[in-house]
Amino acid sequence: MTVATAPKKATTNLIGLEKSDYRGLETTLCQGCGHNSIVSQIVAVCFELSIPPEQLIKVSGIGCSSKAPAYFMNRAHGFNGLHGRMPSAATGAILANHSMRAIGMSGDGDTANIGMGQFKHMVRRNVPMVYIVANNGVYGLTKGQFSATAEQGLELKKGLQNKLPPIDICLEALIGGASFVARSFAGDPRQLSTLLKAALAHKGTAVLDVISPCVIFNNKDESPKSYAWGREHEEPLHDLTYVPERDEIVISYEPGEITSVAFADGSSLRLKKIEVDHDPTSRLAALTLIEESRTQGTFVTGLIYVNPTQPTFVEISGLGTTPLARLTPAQMRPTEETLRDINARFA
């Protein structure tokens, strides 16, 4: 048969897996929920980058966002822990086996309300993981209360008005000492996909604050966390291109317009200037950018800050190559002779 001999379209990635190998369970999130778009991008990116699913852990807290790890990569171990406490469980897990990759899924309530303390200590430690906040400004599972990222003056379904100023997750991450801070929009899959790849290439904590509209409780056109508002107002900082290590393609850009960020794994992210002149390697510029965005009410997305060489917690902790979770009993229990020495010290 001619069909049989025709060259088959490549449906497998470099490690021989199909995209379906990266899928999770059927989502139980609402139709149109921004989180589903994030999930789709994770599946696509991990497939494209040929990440072995068994070499990745999915960690999350509690909330709509934190249910999401069930909907991608069934072949990766998942840990759906406690509300606001994903960072500590993830930290312990990663330190116990630093050969694993980790994707954390959190929400605005999980991160900026109940989990602020752990979030800031995780970024301070620069624990190697991708930390995604699916940010919609509202509690979904408990039916529409404000979270700490809700805009001042926002009115939700129940007619209550939020009287407090919002917490900016990217700003908190920066002040906490994060080494990778990006903001994206669930309605901009192309940019989200590129930032996810860069986040996975980054060796430390990569914070991705993704505005991810809640179609049930916070998607009125005038709400800054709605699809309509996002599409209308999104101002990408750069035109982004992720260049995998193996890719030697040289993309021709005008000189002076391109910045390239090289990651430890050999890949790089090329940033082409659009309008503003933002240097994502400057923490001060990043802080200024967020503050100006706040005062001007703009929706700036893209790579806000990156320091690809900032030492990770694994690097500074003195861990060896053998993961702690893979030590043998002989490596774990000192010899009887050593105990004789110990006893002699107390005799």
């Binding site: 500590s88 312990g92 897990a93 902790s317 190559t321």
Partner: peptide, 29 residues
């Protein structure tokens, strides 16, 4: 090489959280 790691956590929520994460991963924690 160090075949151990100790972390002074930010509080006891974090301390047990880390220990549980490491225990889940398979380390004696």
């Amino acid at each position: 090489e160090n075949h151990f790691l100790m972390v002074q956590a930010e509080d006891e929520l974090g301390a047990l959280g880390m220990a549980v994460g490491a225990g889940w991963m398979g380390a004696r924690s």
